[in-house]
Design a protein around this nucleic acid. Sequence first.
DNA 1: ATACAATCTAAACCTTAGTTTAGGTCAAGC
DNA 2: GCTTGACCTAAACTAAGGTTTAGATTGTAT
Lengths: 150, 150
Amino acid sequence: MQIGEISKKTGLSISALRYYDKHGLLQNIGRSNGGIRKFDNKDLEALRIIICLKTSGMKLPEIKQFMDWCSKGDTTIDKRLNMFYEQEKNINKQIDILSKSLKLIKFKQWYYETAKEDGTENNVKSMNVEDYPDDIRKLYEAFMLGSQNT
Amino acid sequence: MQIGEISKKTGLSISALRYYDKHGLLQNIGRSNGGIRKFDNKDLEALRIIICLKTSGMKLPEIKQFMDWCSKGDTTIDKRLNMFYEQEKNINKQIDILSKSLKLIKFKQWYYETAKEDGTENNVKSMNVEDYPDDIRKLYEAFMLGSQNT
DNA sequence: ATACAATCTAAACCTTAGTTTAGGTCAAGC
DNA sequence: GCTTGACCTAAACTAAGGTTTAGATTGTAT
C-alpha cells in the first residue's frame, strides 16, 4: 500500500503521515527502489495505535518514545507496560474533567430553558440557589465546589 | 480584586488573563483611575465558566461569541441555549472516544503483562485472536471494529 | 516515447494559545 | 518624596502539530 491508500484507510492526511515518518513515529516502513513508501498491515496496525494514543492526549514525542521501545525488543517490556498504566490514569482524569463540565452544561441548559420560557433572563438570573429545583441545585453545587473559592 | 489575586483563585496565569481580556472574553471588567483591572465576583464566575468551556474543548473565538451574546441580552437566549445543547453533544463524543481508547489501553496492559510473565513478547505476539481470553478478545475487537478496514 | 497521477523532499508558512521582554505606571508604606 | 511590588502595554517570541509550496522523480497506461 502507498501513502494515499493509507491516508484513506486511517483518515490521516498524507502530509501528516509524512510528518510522522519524518519524526520517527513510523518505524521500519519500506521504500520502493524509487523511494516510494510501502506500507504493510503491520504499519497500518501501528498507525491505529498511534491514532488512539494521540486522540487520548498523548504527545508525539511520547508516542515516538513508545515506538522506539517497541523496536528495542524485550528489554523494554516493563517500560511499555508502565506507559499503558499511566495512560489509563490519564484518560480517566480526562473523563472526570469532561463529566464535571457536563454538569455545568446541564445546569446552563436548565437556566436558558427557564429564561426562554420566561422570555427573559431576569427572573432566573436573580433566583437564589436554594430555589433551584433539587436536581439542578446539585449540578450547580457540584460545579461550584469543584472549583473552590468564593 | 486585582489580576494577581484572580490568577491565584482561578489557576490561570496573569498573562493568560490579560490575553483573554485583550481578546474580548472578559467583558465589562472595571479599571481603576490609573488603569488597573478591577475584578468582582461576577467576573470570577464568568471566568469559571470560561475555564469549563475551554477544558471541554471549546475554542476561544467560540467562547467569545458566547460572551458577546451574554452582553447582548434577552434576544440571544435561544442562541446560548443552543450552544449548550451542542456542547453537550461535543462532550459526549469526546467521552466516547476516550472510552474507546481505554479499551485499547486495557488490551495493551494485558498484552504486556503476559509478555512480562513470559519474559518475552514473542509468545503473545504470535497468538491468534481466538486464543485471547474472552474479555481481552472483546476489548481487542471493540478497538479493531471501531477503526474499520483490514 | 509520452503523458499523467501519485509520490518525493526541503523549506517556508500557518494556527492556537498563550509567554516573554522591554520599558513604563500605580499606589501603599516609610 | 522615595522605594518597592504589583500592575500596565505593545510587540516579539514560542511550541505543537501540522499544511502549503515548489520543483523534482516514479511508475503505470496508452
